[in-house]
Nucleic acid binder design. Sequence first.
DNA 1: CGGATCAATGCAAGCGCTTACATTCTACCT
DNA 2: AGGTAGAATGTAAGCGCTTGCATTGATCCG
Lengths: 338, 338
Amino acid sequence: MTRTLPTLEDVARASGVSTATVSRALNAPKRVRPETLARITAAVEKLGYTPHFGGRALASNRTFTIGAVIPTMENAIFARGLQALQEQLSAHGVTLLVATSNYDPDEEAAQVTALLGRGVDGMVLIGEARDPATYLLLERRGVPFVLVWSWRPDCPWPCVGFDNAVAAREIAQEVLDLGHRDIAMIAGITHGNDRAAARVAGVRQALTDRGLTLPPDRLIESEYSLDAGVSAATRLLALTPRPSVILCGNDVLAAGAYSAIRQAGLSIPDDISVTGFDDIDLAQVLDPGLTTVHVPHRRMGETAARLLLDLERGAPVTRNIALRTGIVRRGSLAAPPA
Amino acid sequence: MTRTLPTLEDVARASGVSTATVSRALNAPKRVRPETLARITAAVEKLGYTPHFGGRALASNRTFTIGAVIPTMENAIFARGLQALQEQLSAHGVTLLVATSNYDPDEEAAQVTALLGRGVDGMVLIGEARDPATYLLLERRGVPFVLVWSWRPDCPWPCVGFDNAVAAREIAQEVLDLGHRDIAMIAGITHGNDRAAARVAGVRQALTDRGLTLPPDRLIESEYSLDAGVSAATRLLALTPRPSVILCGNDVLAAGAYSAIRQAGLSIPDDISVTGFDDIDLAQVLDPGLTTVHVPHRRMGETAARLLLDLERGAPVTRNIALRTGIVRRGSLAAPPA
DNA sequence: CGGATCAATGCAAGCGCTTACATTCTACCT
DNA sequence: AGGTAGAATGTAAGCGCTTGCATTGATCCG
């Protein structure tokens, strides 16, 4: 069954050269004479030779693999960023290894260790908040890494992302400008999640700037899932006075809010406004369209890939890349009811 | 920088045994005396030892990795199945390597080769339709694989999925039972995609059973994306007589249809009905809720993982596992307008 | 108490590849 | 023609781990 595969040596024999030359032909073609190269290529073709990954990893101490640990694949937001990351890496012969942490810091640490064990040459991590031990581990190993989705001017590690607090503040300001005063928010779980925390902080900031506050009963932290969004929104709708707008930590939560609102027999935006964060496809499918913060996921993934690749070959790089977000105005946000 | 990592030998020295014993302690703990084991474990801990992946792969000719090639991560449907697959594999110490083909058969073949090159111990592939050469390659290498998302009684390869044609036929029958006669369909691209093709075939079957047909202008094949769904639906709405229902090849297309319909100033289901396929979260967020075919994605992923694991250790297995789908009735399907 | 049996461990040969260093060719110059 | 630099290639030493086989040490039986 497992007919033994052709090895470098087989190729060498078949093309009448040494294994060293074959290896060079494969890894640095300009270093072998064209005719030799041709002979080797032919032999490779004929034998159907593929380099043995383990052998290569062992000898070169490189795996041409980079690892990413994301919270979950089930959120379109990460899927899209990953897809871009992967495309970019593939183009450079690098494979992407994806692990998920389910938003659990300990689980994330475990996955980082696992990936390191597999000898990844680099790593992509979401956000900045994590156990210092993890950063230490990464540095000890000398494995380059880049943080995505988060950004702040003085982030000590290479990162490509955006300022979640600023983005959240901007959309909150827009809400305030429309005259809303009874404001509520459904945030993600902030523990161990700097993005979620920054979004709350941004909203708070906008309120404070106008002398307002976000009372505890008007801020619900919720798992990033549709069902959780529905129940959080349901609770908020029961409040007196009823909020005139619900700011959501991401679009999925906003979709949940839509369900709850519809179920309560209310209408968006006449009775109540809703905003999201991320601008996934879902946002334009909802009726009315969701006013949300647009995040350039794909660009983030691509940029991260390039940065990591540069980091790996020791190229001089800008280690701290900020991307712009923007507000996408659709129908879900309007002035509060009179 | 890249401080050299501790090796098996370091552990052996630190615990006063041979590397062979350490290796056994790690891979088959019951084969070493408890006290020895304890000493080794302590040394491992103290040195922070992690097995070197390449070395292990080289010596054992196994990578504890299985590969999956999916069309795209951006469709929630695959994301969910993958997540389940991964969780199940992780629990058995196996890592999942994901590659994407973007629904392109050639690209898929290339990705399979790439994964094989990385020495995956097994593979998960979506659907059955692909170049025979790919199957040949897999068999030559003796790499076990399982097909997911597709199923038919006499599929020659291990598979876990459902009968797409039957599922599509069932929902089409339901549509017909409600009295619809002006039927249109937005299908996925059927070339190289047996699931999409089977869904069309199923719908056709249902129509034929009642002496009806699906005229060419009422069947549009479309990329599985929101925008493509919108434009396909727009074209269908312009037909005379206007279809009373649009059957969609998946939920994303259905969401696109919603947009187009809303934009045309029509209402679902009063003016026109819509059905989907997959039952992703989106289906319940749409307003009205989308009547669709529920596919047990998570279970499919889990089952595939188990099957693959069994296949790998040569356990006797049922190679051909059918999962049940069902129709989820929400508000998007009603009798045609009078 | 000698020997057989079996569990625990050690020995050492690779697994397929890369790469520093040594060797051989091939212009090209004087 | 002799010499030399530089390109092309070969030699061989590992990279860290697993595993078949050999060895040792206990245990148990007659």
